[in-house]
């Protein structure tokens, strides 16, 4: 993945990104915001981007915000701030239909001890609101 050809990026890539999909995600967020903006609202007016992130997605919020801030200018969204809401993992047991939240990544039904457990919530990354300065 290439964000820009500036040498600093190569350093960043090597230092931090070897294990980080956050950069790809930061770039995808910015592209999506540009795509979602209604006609007449220029990217410079965007002040906040609200993102929901499933807890299972293993996204490190600090890294995502750091990288988002680092590249937002190159995408023409210099004033955009990223606000991240984490969505807890919610499961349902297929054996006894019990629904439960997970504090730890243990996908076992606390009611019947069954391990056939499906995920209802807690996976996926989406933008749900964009704030922009009024004219």
């Amino acid at each position: 993945m290439k964000v820009s050809d500036k040498p600093v990026w190569h350093l960043l890539f090597q230092r931090y990104c070897l294990l980080m999909h956050e950069l790809y995600i930061a770039e995808s967020i910015l592209n999506s915001v540009l795509d979602l903006l209604p006609a007449g609202i220029t990217p410079e007016r965007v002040t906040k981007v609200h993102l929901s992130v499933g807890q299972l997605d293993a996204v490190v919020s600090e890294s995502l915000i750091f990288l988002f801030d680092a590249i937002k200018g190159t995408k023409g969204l210099p004033h955009a701030q990223l606000a991240i809401e984490t969505i807890a993992v919610l499961c349902q047991c297929k054996t006894c239909a019990h629904q439960f939240n997970l504090d730890l990544p243990i996908f076992i039904c606390p009611q019947c001890n069954g391990s056939d457990v499906i995920l209802l919530q807690g996976r996926g990354i989406s933008i749900y609101r964009i704030e922009a300065k009024d004219d």
């Binding site: 995808s28 979602l36 609202i41 609101r129």
Partner: peptide, 14 residues
């Protein structure tokens, strides 16, 4: 102003 949307960030990838 607020723009309410629902956009999967990995839509393009998917």
């Amino acid at each position: 102003m607020e723009i309410n949307v629902v956009r999967d960030v990995l839509e393009e990838s998917n």
